[in-house]
Design a protein around this nucleic acid. Structure first.
Length: 337
DNA sequence: AATCCGTGGAA
DNA sequence: TTTCCAAGGAT
């Protein structure tokens, strides 16, 4: 356990010299904006800094404060979120903004417990906000921390079995004998995980804490954390109905539950594992394949020259916030209409 | 506890 | 081409 204090000190020194400059981060002398911290943390769930930066910039440009975001409509937020994926995050973001304004006087709560009661804020995000925005020592466990700790201790059990032991190690590291500069320390682990202790080719030669890393000692850091093998995802098929008339195309708002919930898109058939009737691969003019987390979809756009409800101008299509699946459809067929 | 929920980039 | 996966949360 004594190593935890040394690790913290090494990490803080390393962070002072190598911290990444990111749009949501404050300068060393300034207080972070809890709104920025929250927004960035939610956006970063299950994705990458590169994917998030333009979305973050756009959001704070349109909605500079949580009050502004709460005053928007859910459809506004979904439209701006389009392309980032996991759209329940956007709905929860909006719910959370409204709760903060209506139930917390527009002030972000500073306790893990209260933060966690808000929509879209779970174990990780509540601890991250408490640490990063308010400098409250918290146990911040994300994919980066899981990877770093798995390697430091060369944990043999695969994820998610190892989550319990990882949390024990993390407790000691985050709120053990030394809790100095919790905000910087939490962010230092994120940066280490993103730039040095990476999943595939960790740069152990330049790692500030390799001397404490059991996996480094055994020269096999890259095999940790071990993970259970994932089963293959099913292939599904469907038809997209592209109603075209007089320079306009038909769109619909999807149901509030299920895939791409609440997003706009082209009407489609159901998606199932049976290949599509009447549309042979060879006979169809178009085919879009899109891989989701739990299945891969092959969608056959079928152009229908007739009017339907809710037609919009072709040139408006790019502005309505189509999720990527339907952007792919539109990009493929637009020039042929 | 296990499943659902997106996307784009790297190797 | 295929596989893996990047700052998880809700149910």
């Amino acid at each position: 356990m004594k190593n935890d204090v040394k690790i913290r000190n090494e990490m803080l020194s390393w962070y002072d010299a190598h911290a990444r400059v990111l749009p949501w981060r404050s300068k060393p002398s300034e207080r972070p904006d809890p709104y920025y911290v929250w927004l960035s943390e939610v956006m970063l769930q299950q994705t990458t800094v590169q994917a998030v930066v333009p979305y973050f910039e756009k959001f704070i440009s349109i909605w500079p404060t949580v009050h502004d975001l709460a005053s928007a409509t859910q459809d506004d937020v979904l439209r701006e979120w389009a392309g980032l994926g996991y759209y329940s995050r956007a709905r929860n973001l909006y719910k959370c903004a409204q709760a903060i304004v209506s139930e917390h006087d527009g002030i972000f709560p500073n306790s893990v417990k209260t933060l966690k009661s808000l929509s879209g804020i779970g174990d990780y995000t509540s601890a991250a906000i408490a640490s990063i925005a308010f400098d409250i020592p918290s146990v911040v466990i994300d994919g980066n921390v899981e990877r770093v700790i798995s390697r430091l201790h060369r944990i043999d059990a695969p994820l998610p079995d190892s989550k319990t032991i990882i949390r024990e190690y993390a407790q000691n590291l985050f709120i053990g004998d030394n809790t100095d500069r919790p905000s910087c320390f939490a962010q230092s682990l994120m940066d280490l995980g993103a730039t040095i202790c990476t999943p595939k080719s960790p740069k152990c030669e330049i790692c500030p804490i390799s001397k404490y890393c059991v996996a480094f000692e055994h020269c096999d850091a890259q095999v940790y954390p071990k993970k259970r093998k994932k089963s293959k995802i099913p292939e599904k098929y469907g038809v997209a109905y592209i109603y075209v008339h007089d320079g306009k195309v038909g769109i619909e708002k999807r149901p509030e539950k299920g895939m791409l919930a609440g997003m706009v898109g082209f009407p489609t058939s159901e998606w199932n594992e049976d290949s599509v009737d009447n549309i042979d691969d060879d006979m169809s003019a178009y085919k879009i394949r899109h891989v989701f987390t739990h299945f891969a979809l092959t969608l056959y756009p079928q152009i229908i020259n007739q009017k339907t409800y809710n037609m919009i101008e072709f040139k408006e299509v790019d502005k309505i916030g189509l999720p990527t699946l339907f952007k792919k459809v539109w990009n493929m067929i637009e020039s042929d209409l």
